[in-house]
Simulated scan of single mutants.
Amino acid sequence: MNLAKGCNPSLQEMQAFTKAPNFKWEKTHKKGYFTNLNPKMPHIKRASLWEVLRFYLFKPKNAKPKYPLPFIKTDFKSLYTKNPAVVWFGHSSLLINDEYFKILIDPVFSSYASPKAWINRAFESNVSWSSDDFESIDALVITHDHYDHLDYPTIMALKDKVKHFIVPLGVGSHLRFWGVPFTQITELYWWQSLNLTPSIKITSTPSQHSSGRGIQWDRTLWTSYVLDIKDKKIFLSGDGGYYTHFKQIGERFGSIDLAILENGQYNLAWQYSHSFTPQVFQTALDLKAKMIMPIHYGRFAAGSHAWNEPLKNLISLCDTHCLPISVPKIGEVYELNTPPKREIWWDF
């Protein structure tokens, strides 16, 4: 048995999901699955074997950086920030910190993002993080159950230090299979909220993507989130293609102080799963974002582009249209209410 694959929700659990508008239950086949809001793409089509092989065989030479990326080795055990702050670990792994309260987002501290160590290896790096870097974690948030966002070795290493897991509907089945107590898991559907403290609230918001760690796909939900921390709103995109839900989120929340947006790993073969850079910029406009911070790059190569191409293109768009963009180094603390990080570290 490959424990890393986790365990999809049971038939009984999936029957309970039928209350969710975008969960479809096939009574005759006794199975169910989540769908996207986009009627043209309710299910993300899987890339063909040829499309996948073509990507791996003909991806550009600079799909990975020539040298290890620069980093800052922050001491998280003693980290205190007066304002909400963000630390990026590469790809989509983040720490949101407020005073001493710590929220980990999609942590992947392994050197690969797949069920097998030889698939989807991380870029060469001079830095790594582990459970030893944290005294305790107040909340661990997952956006969906793909391997580059829900990492079995990382969860197993961290789970005894995590006070509360917040995940999309159905993803709790993986965590329970791995030994996380039921009482420490909250599963959210789109637009459901949870108060983490009197001054911190998290809301699950729609996304256009897919889920699955094996043969049975879309048995668990995928999501984005809005974090209300004191007087600030932080948007966490997770993975997802562009659609009208971003505008709906912007209208509901008024404005977003920092939009942390997926930007990278795009390919025409999976164009509805991930956003191209012009769509990322439009997402920020739809969200009424005051500042962008790009993620989903800098650790794994899963798109048919140079590793830093999406970043350079998004910076150019933001600068042209006078939208602030913060691009911290891996491990660097960016505190809201301070100027964006713009030291050029990616130009090689």
Rank of each mutant, 00 (worst) to 15 (best):
F235Y: 14
H209K: 05
P68F: 03
S275D: 08
K64H: 12
G298K: 00
T338V: 07
P339E: 02
K40N: 14
S128Y: 13
P278D: 09
L311E: 05
P324H: 08
T203K: 04
T143L: 05
K24E: 11
S110N: 09
T283P: 04
I44N: 09
L236A: 00
L94I: 10
L268K: 14
F134N: 01
V141H: 02
H149P: 04
S199E: 11
D239A: 15
D151E: 07
S237V: 03
A117D: 09
F55M: 06
S273Y: 06
G32F: 07
T205Y: 01
G172I: 06
D286I: 01
F123M: 04
G240Q: 08
M293T: 01
D98I: 15
H209A: 12
F300I: 05
N83Y: 15
S92R: 12
T197D: 06
H146N: 10
N8D: 13
F134T: 05
N120K: 11
L323H: 12
W191C: 01
I96A: 01
T186Y: 00
S199L: 11
Y243F: 15
A301N: 09
I229S: 04
E262N: 14
I325D: 05
I166E: 00
M1W: 15
P68M: 00
S199Y: 13
L49K: 12
F23C: 07
I249G: 03
T74Y: 08
I256T: 07
K290E: 09
I103N: 07
S48K: 14
S10A: 04
Q271I: 13
T283F: 01
S92H: 08
E309M: 11
R299E: 01
G303C: 05
G238F: 00
Y189G: 13
S199P: 00
L285K: 10
S224R: 04
S237M: 12
F71V: 03
E26V: 15
W129A: 04
L3N: 09
T143R: 05
G298S: 09
D160R: 13
H164W: 10
K312I: 15
S111D: 13
G172M: 05
T74I: 12
T81G: 09
L57I: 12
P324Q: 09
D151V: 02
P278K: 08
H29T: 08
P310N: 10
P42Q: 09
I105D: 07
V108D: 10
K31R: 13
L317F: 09
L95K: 03
E335V: 15
F300K: 00
P39Q: 03
K61S: 11
S92K: 09
L323I: 15
K312A: 14
T203R: 03
L336R: 08
Y334W: 15
I200C: 03
F253S: 02
V108H: 05
S131K: 12
K290G: 09
H209V: 03
G212C: 06
H174D: 08
Y80C: 10
E135R: 08
P206H: 02
S48F: 10
D347M: 06
P65I: 01
A20G: 05
L258S: 06
D319L: 14
